[in-house]
Design a protein around this nucleic acid. Structure first.
Lengths: 224, 224
DNA sequence: CCACCGGCTGAACGCACGTTCAATATGCTA
DNA sequence: TAGCATATTGAACGTGCGTTCAGCCGGTGG
């Protein structure tokens, strides 16, 4: 609460932590974070109390940043490619993307909140798209939005996990290449589908109640 | 080598390691693995040399088991649902699934090999399905197979990471509930698509060369 | 001037972990 | 029986980590 000297020290540590966490994961040593920020490890404790508190503040700060970026880019968001479109700007804010991916990797509350936001956004986009007639309606819009979001983020997470970038700057290239490889099959699937007949879908619809059923352990339509 | 006394000790340790790794991840302490197996930590070192060697042997053993299970179930594998169908038997071999998911989570070579196998299987299944006329052809079958496999496995990984089971037996319930929630949107997407017009796909096809183009920035999934 | 207070440091503590080692028990071989 | 290899243990070592602590430095108030 003092002058800028205080704030800059805290901010430097926080940013260094975000970068280290994004690159090495949350097992990154506190001492290397401190070194990146040009301070001692003790000072980190003095300012944040513990490593967990530091991470919590990073979470909070990143969530705020993400919300701001979303608000700024909400005009450009187009239905149908919204999940990916946001990551197109990954080059400029690679640390954020890396941090979020690391959060997904260890299932932190930030990942849960981020994903829930993405699902909510997807619900809105698909609702608009369906209303505009460019997206086919679903029998369970919420389930579809969650399915599409989890598929997109999950496959990205898997790809980055299998090919981890050493330099955080490489993350942009990896994400971009992933999108390039995904775009054709995704568009094909979205416009032409995958199955030629309705048989499997119709059979499934005969077995389960059609309304949106958030269920925990319903008897699956085990074929065979 | 020797009598069953030797084998059982090694095997007990290996199985205990698989279980612990599946439940807690690969950071699980060697001492708790040893306790699960009813032996001392030193004996684990004596038999396996190091924790990494123990894990390598777990990897090897699981890959062999997976290959065997695949061979046994290959008759039941049906195109289009093959990725999921395999996991339907998750209740009986939850440790295997948990271990593989943990491997994906940290991007080990086992995960890479497992996924490459899954992609290869998907290529085969879709080829058969296309030949039989039940699956629509793709302009890049390899890319589609990889896309579908990464999406399925990635979303499952994400779901399990966000809702980690404490008891490995719960893993089956989580996977089953995930499949239940995914099945409708997946079947809808596979049979009815997502977009109502071909515009985005056609526009994309105008911009890129249509033949299968493996991007340069990404390490290509070079088969064998 | 002195006293104080917060930013800041380096050294040290304590813990959990992988690993090593000397010692003991249990066979098998000659 | 002696002798030797193997299975097994408990204690100890070394390390990396988060965290604690006593103290230094610089500015501010009295």
């Amino acid at each position: 609460m003092r002058a800028d000297a205080d704030l800059t020290a805290r901010a430097r540590i926080r940013d260094a932590a975000v970068n280290r966490f994004a690159v090495e994961g949350f097992g990154a040593p506190l001492r290397s974070i401190a070194k990146d920020a040009g301070v001692s490890a003790g000072l980190v404790m003095h300012h944040f109390g513990s490593k967990d508190k530091l991470r919590a503040e990073c979470d909070e700060h990143l969530l705020a940043t993400i919300r701001r970026l979303k608000r700024e880019n909400v005009a450009e968001a187009a239905a149908g490619q919204s999940f990916f479109h946001k990551f197109a700007a990954v080059e400029e804010n690679a640390p954020i993307v890396g941090y979020v991916l690391r959060s997904m990797q260890d299932g932190s509350p930030l990942a849960r909140e981020f994903i829930d936001h993405m699902v909510d956004d997807a619900v809105g986009y698909t609702r608009d798209g369906v209303a505009a007639g460019v997206i086919v309606p679903s029998r369970d819009e919420a389930a579809r939005a969650r399915y599409l979001t989890l598929s997109s983020l999950g496959s990205l997470l898997l790809e980055v996990t299998l090919n981890p970038p050493s330099d955080p700057h490489d993350l942009g290239a990896i994400v971009r290449s992933f999108l390039n490889n995904s775009y054709l099959p995704m568009l094909e699937l979205f416009t032409e589908g995958f199955l030629t007949s309705r048989r499997m879908l119709d059979e499934y619809l005969m077995y389960v109640p059609d309304p949106p059923s958030q269920d925990e352990a319903a008897p699956a339509p085990t074929p065979g």
